[in-house]
Design a protein around this nucleic acid. Structure first.
Lengths: 196, 196
DNA sequence: CGTCTATTTGAATGTACTCAAAAGCGGTGG
DNA sequence: CCACCGCTTTTGAGTACATTCAAATAGACG
């Protein structure tokens, strides 16, 4: 199992002894996910914190009209889960799907809870992780309330420069909250202005 | 200082010994905030986690056109802060203002960090607090992406039943992301349908 | 290479916004 | 305690940003 990336990810916020590292990695399961394969479906209980080592995942919900709305993307070095379902262990509303062939490490709810007890530093680690996630979410929320679609797209480009050129435009449109049709027209306008 | 409410709030997630309770409350400062008084201004560093014991606060940002967008309301028993500024200790973009005469307890950034060291259970407490906040934010984000204004209002009523009848409509409109004018027209329509 | 999905384009439509002005309500001071 | 002033709320007309629906085109995967 390749645990380099996840150990580096954790080392950004807490320091682990070699024994603690070993204890932690022994709790992980590895999984390969095929393109378009679902890691989680609406109505299921989210049992894992998922860390992406290769590829890309996305989480999304389906509304009453059958439209998808992207909650998050997870390229390598990112964590993803249906937080509501994971913390409550009740059925959630999110799907988690691979946008391309993807490699993930899974940390089960039980193991994560055990980790908080065995190595209290992990309480800190996940607190910090969630704090950052919350800040990012709040910014996205304010963008949605205050900015037109074009500005929201510009913010998306700044925040996820590595994703802009590899995600299907339909997915980006969904993330910033517009239809693919409108996104296409908007891009034409943006490119027209940039080429001058 | 009246610390009953905040100790009850904490007891929902972690158990403290009387000594720990005393240590914790010794870190708090009490403050009375007048109606319309600002606890935090855009560009300032957010130094405190704020817990409301009486009254009501709101946090909001100002966009480039001078329009306000409400990030959060904090009635009694709620915590509020500019999370971005609080965790980074850099100037933030939020205002925090009292909507009515309000009593708060303040926990400084330094004391909160010290608390994590002195009583590690608090690491858990704030992790859980932030997890809940994140879940609530994600739901609001999805509502914004998938629901028309009328449905967003219905969700707001379900989530904050105690606030619906005491907040100015303008503030609710801002929270759900519509203009006061549109909100007024929407309410007329809602009431017309309900009265049938 | 063929099929399926993503993307583009266009026309008609709708939801929510802007601007302006009147009416209502509440807090503050006299 | 009342009256005034300012802010909130309402109402209306015109507008804009974004959607819907339909169809053509382009791309990507097996």
């Amino acid at each position: 199992m390749d645990t380099n990336l996840i150990l580096q990810n954790i080392a950004k916020h807490i320091q682990l002894t070699p024994e603690e590292q070993a204890h932690f990695t022994s709790m992980l399961a590895q999984k390969s996910v095929k393109r378009k394969e679902m890691l989680l479906q609406e109505g299921e209980v989210c049992r894992y914190s998922t860390f992406v080592t290769q590829g890309c995942l996305r989480s999304y919900s389906l509304d009453h009209n059958g439209f998808e709305h992207v909650m998050a993307f997870a390229p390598p070095d990112w964590w993803i889960a249906d937080m509501y379902s994971f913390i409550s262990q009740k059925p959630g509303m999110l799907f988690i799907e691979a946008l391309e062939p993807t490699e993930v490490l899974l940390l089960s709810k039980e193991n994560q809870e055990r980790l908080y007890v065995d190595i209290p530093k992990f309480e800190r680690f996940f607190r910090i992780l969630i704090e950052k996630s919350l800040v990012s979410n709040q910014q996205r929320l304010l963008d949605g309330l205050s900015l037109p679609a074009q500005e929201r797209f510009r913010h998306f480009c700044q925040r996820y420069p590595s994703l802009v050129n590899c995600l299907p435009k339909k997915q980006i449109a969904s993330y910033i909250g517009v239809t693919p049709e409108f996104f296409s027209k908007m891009m034409k306008e943006v490119n027209r202005l940039r080429s001058k």
